[in-house]
């Protein structure tokens, strides 16, 4: 076997190994994607129940909601907090970079209008990219993007709510990969704070059953403590739920993006193997032809 044939053969071997790895990663991502989808589903009944309770408490309390600090806009918007939700790991196509890009673009817009920007990031990828660019995030949340828990979301939400209520920031925007299907994710930019009253009272897709049954007997309901007090805690829960949902969607999107990226990597490896096999066969054929020619030439010289 000639040197070039051997080279091609080793390359085929290593491409095959890579293909095995990308196939395995694709399957792992597919399994995790299913679990992430289930977790999005599991949040629905809770979010729906919180929404119904809020409506009930708001009805009982009259219109006291506007007085809550997280619902009121600040007089001037000087500092904007940007929360970028990325993953802890790469190899997922444009998943991480498109979030960072969207965040930096928004930051440039805000800065052009004279506002200062404070970054927060979930996921190692976002934290390290921002730090590398000299924009070290104030809030760094890492180590859970594979399987975010509600407590992780609560930590992020409470940091932001505290900073907002204490007047350190005047507005919070969140950037994440919204999950549409395993093949489709879209970058979403949403305003987290100030919280819009409309988003609380509108009927969301979380309402699996109507609120009519609850309101029929609400006049007899006993409240512990007063409905106003209950509302004061129910409303910040929306921020937590929004962050939690964004984390879950981002996780599902990450696995979806990785699955797609790994599938195309496996396909590319397959094509490469075909090309290389063809090249190897051609080299072998050329060698055989060469040898036959030599034999024929030798035989001719004897006659």
């Amino acid at each position: 076997m000639s040197a070039s044939q051997r080279d091609v053969k080793t390359r085929i071997g290593s491409v095959k190994n890579i293909q095995k790895i990308t196939r395995a990663m694709e399957m792992v991502a597919a399994a995790r994607l299913r679990r992430a989808e289930q977790r999005i589903e599991a949040l629905r009944p809770y979010a729906g129940a919180i929404r119904r309770m809020t409506r009930q408490a708001a009805e009982a309390a009259g219109s006291e909601m506007a007085a809550l600090p997280i619902l009121s806009e600040h007089d001037s918007e000087d500092t904007i907090a940007l929360l970028l939700i990325t993953g802890d790991r790469g190899l997922a196509g444009a998943f991480n970079s498109q979030i960072v890009r969207a965040g930096l673009r928004a930051a440039a817009e805000h800065e052009a209008e004279g506002r200062s920007v404070a970054y927060s990031a979930a996921g190692r990828r976002g934290v390290s990219t921002l730090t590398f660019r000299g924009k070290e995030p104030q809030g760094q949340y890492v180590g859970f993007t594979d399987r975010p828990s509600y407590a992780d979301a609560r930590e992020i939400a409470e940091d932001l709510v505290a900073a907002y209520v204490d007047d350190k920031i005047d507005r919070v925007e969140i950037f994440y990969n919204g999950y549409i299907s395993p093949l489709t994710q879209e970058v979403r930019r949403e305003t987290l704070l100030p919280l819009q009253q409309a988003t609380i009272l509108e009927a969301g897709d979380d309402d699996d059953d109507g609120g009519e049954a609850d309101s029929a007997h609400h006049s007899l309901v006993e409240y512990e403590p007063d409905p106003e007090e209950i509302l004061k805690r129910l409303i910040p829960d929306y921020v937590e739920i929004s962050v939690y949902r964004a984390l879950l969607e981002s996780t599902a999107s990450e696995h979806g993006a990785r699955m797609t990226a790994m599938r195309s990597a496996s396909e590319n490896a397959g094509e490469l193997i075909e090309d290389l096999t063809l090249e190897m066969n051609r080299a072998r054929q050329a060698e055989i032809t060469q040898e036959i020619m030599e034999v024929v030439a030798g035989a001719e010289s004897l006659t």
């Binding site: 006993e222 409240y223 512990e224």
Partner: peptide, 14 residues
């Protein structure tokens, strides 16, 4: 602290 038995009055508590 609160203990809820059957037929408790409708309640919303934190």
């Amino acid at each position: 602290s609160i203990g809820i038995l059957a037929h408790h009055q409708p309640l919303l508590g934190m």
